[in-house]
């Protein structure tokens, strides 16, 4: 097996694993139960998506995807902060949608 083959196979496997991870983390977003759990899972999902983007970059050899991955890392942070803020402010108002 040449290095190229190895690369191809391992990226494929990595993609599959990451795809699986993505799907699994989504489960937590859906089932909750608390807001924190969901936000946490979304955060994780962003990181996994970032990994996915990076892997695709490797697989296609187009390094331009890398910047997307970096931006995703930045923005995932933003989303988490905003949602954490949201959870905090919920503390001030009586919860109306807790499961």
């Amino acid at each position: 097996m040449s290095a190229a083959d190895i690369l191809s196979w391992s990226t494929l496997i990595a993609l599959i694993i990451l795809g699986l991870a993505l799907l699994i983390s989504v489960i937590r977003i859906i089932i909750g139960p608390t807001l924190g759990d969901r936000v946490l899972a979304l955060d994780l999902m962003t990181v996994i998506a970032m990994g996915l983007v990076g892997t695709i970059a490797v697989r296609t050899g187009l390094m331009l995807y890398l910047d997307i991955a970096i931006a995703l890392a930045l923005l995932g942070f933003l989303a988490t902060v905003a949602l954490a803020r949201y959870i905090l402010s919920r503390a001030a108002t009586p919860p109306d949608d807790a499961p």
Binding site: T46, A49, V53, L62, L64, Y65, D67, I68, A71, L72, L75, G76, L78, A79, A82, L83, R85, Y86, S89, R90
Partner: peptide
């Protein structure tokens, strides 16, 4: 890639704005 880039951004910002307003 440009679309994906933009879509990620917009998605995250939508969530941020939603979270800001939802408070």
């Amino acid at each position: 890639p440009d679309l994906a880039f933009t879509q990620f951004m917009v998605e995250v910002l939508s969530v941020v704005i939603l979270a800001l307003v939802m408070t």
